[in-house]
Design a protein around this nucleic acid. Sequence first.
DNA 1: ACTTGGTTGGCCCGAAAACGTCCCACGTAA
DNA 2: TTACGTGGGACGTTTTCGGGCCAACCAAGT
Lengths: 349, 349
Amino acid sequence: MRKILEIQKQLLPDLMEILKKRYNILHQIKLSELVGRRTLATSLGMTERVLRAETDLFKEQGLIESESAGMRLSSAGEKLVEDLESIVKELFGLTNMEERIREHFGLQQVLIVPGDSDVSPMTKRDLGLAACKVLRKVMGKDDVVAVTGGSTLAQMAEQMTSMSPMKTNWFVPARGGLGESLEYQANTIASMMAKRVGAQYRLLHVPDLLSDEAYQSLMQEPNIHEIVEFIRRARIVVHGIGDAFAMAKRRRVDQQTVDSLRQDGALAEAFGYYFDRNGNVVHKMLSLGLRLEEIQQMQVVIAIAGGASKGEAVHSVLKFGRETVLIIDEGAANVIVKILDAEEQTEVH
Amino acid sequence: MRKILEIQKQLLPDLMEILKKRYNILHQIKLSELVGRRTLATSLGMTERVLRAETDLFKEQGLIESESAGMRLSSAGEKLVEDLESIVKELFGLTNMEERIREHFGLQQVLIVPGDSDVSPMTKRDLGLAACKVLRKVMGKDDVVAVTGGSTLAQMAEQMTSMSPMKTNWFVPARGGLGESLEYQANTIASMMAKRVGAQYRLLHVPDLLSDEAYQSLMQEPNIHEIVEFIRRARIVVHGIGDAFAMAKRRRVDQQTVDSLRQDGALAEAFGYYFDRNGNVVHKMLSLGLRLEEIQQMQVVIAIAGGASKGEAVHSVLKFGRETVLIIDEGAANVIVKILDAEEQTEVH
DNA sequence: ACTTGGTTGGCCCGAAAACGTCCCACGTAA
DNA sequence: TTACGTGGGACGTTTTCGGGCCAACCAAGT
């Protein structure tokens, strides 16, 4: 059932909106039992004229009957609303969550794909696909896109296609090597994405840094300095979100640091920064590239994550809050919403 | 799946058409493999500009890719078309049958409601409902509507409603008593319909006739003559279609006539006339009211029938062919289409 | 009997979207 | 080279959409 709507959505992108709108109208009529155009319009927040267009359609379809005192659902309409109820619920469960999360964190856009990446690998692919779509939409001429590493981003890179080569675009790693395995490194992903869409790319081949001195001396290197500057000109950054300890382990962080992370309540990781439950930065990997300041001022920050297991992490990164677009799956979304619910509960008491 | 599509058809009738249009375009692109806007437009019979609007959308959705040599389906588009295939079939299977039957018999409109009256009584209700809708649409001011008897028509009468009273309309029986039980008689149905929509009605209380003499002498009666004339002024006739022998039995036709019907290959019955497989009239009930000539010249002839068991009968009456609107259910439609298929088969050989 | 507050359905008009049509630079095949 | 078909752009026209208003009507309350 969901599939059929997914399919239709591709051909009729605004199908869902219309469906929802019409359902709302019918629903409202049902509640009001007998209601006139004007009151209905104001209670739905639409102008009289557009509402009228809809009700005229409903009349034509025999879903409502209009008397001199107002309109009411016909029996067919009643039945339809009943049938719709369950569909709309399922349909807009995700949309509702999207809206809720979007509003709560003040994001520009939230996208939830059905499924749970923890369970089904297909969902991860969908996640990547959705991310590609978003990225394609926000990318303009000459844009520089910075990407991080991680399995989700790698998946996204694999899904990436473009109809016309984006010769004027650049892909760069958001930060230098962060100790991940080659295939999940930002460098790998940036170059892969660039190749797949016919864009250009520049890489930042630096090791993880252990000391400020190393940082300073590397930044003295003209060509390194130059590329870091280039990266900082990025208008768009795409990053994954990870569980702090899973990430630390993957990056083979030494035990001492892990302990300190644990002590600080680290929960999530994104672009080399570790966050605690409340979105505070509790640790950062020392490397070159984008710093938090730049990310905070970036025009488009796209975060991608999937799986119920990452829900908490996503929530904490969102709490830090510089993202503009969030792309997650249903599994993660459910967890996040549950956390929000809990927060509201405690607020009330 | 079926249900959700039905709902959409009611709530988003225009979107379904768009869906079909877009599917057709994508399908055509798929067949052409690589094709330009103009050639595609002509092969689809649309102007270049509207096609362009569609293809632009497809591009935005990533369903097609455009090269300098033309457009082709992207892999996503390919997949979508595949998935759509079944949806469109389901969605427009009935539509296709409607169109096929409409064209084959040169009808003005064919309406197929999902389901089979033989199996589910709900379908019969839908049939009645659909008939009401059609009738409401074709009825104008001062129109006289002649109706026949039968269980389907009775069902229709029960479904009949109108938003505004049709004070200037008349309902009349198409023909005099044809030996049916009271509740299925044309008189009963005409009066019931009239009452339900606030219209007027006149009845024709005459028994079945046994002889020409009786016919002649009854027609001498001024008031009978007058009402028959009135009936013949009808612009619209709504009639059911029945299986010849079921009908004969219900009307308690004597054995001799039944035998003669069987000998003549009678198959179907409508408004008191019996038809054989090829749509020839093989027998007629002697009564007053509309004659075949009048029906043939009537502006709107609406035939209603439901159930696979009536498929053959409907086919033979259609073959006689004076209907303008046909309202059947899926069960009957399937049978009819099967007959048409068989006919085409034999034509080919 | 008369006001009041609501209804529907009709109408008008400016804005915006859709559309028909032509043109252009370009790639490609002959 | 030529000839053709392509996608993309542009532009004036047509059609639709949407906002707003109004007449006729109705029911209820005064």
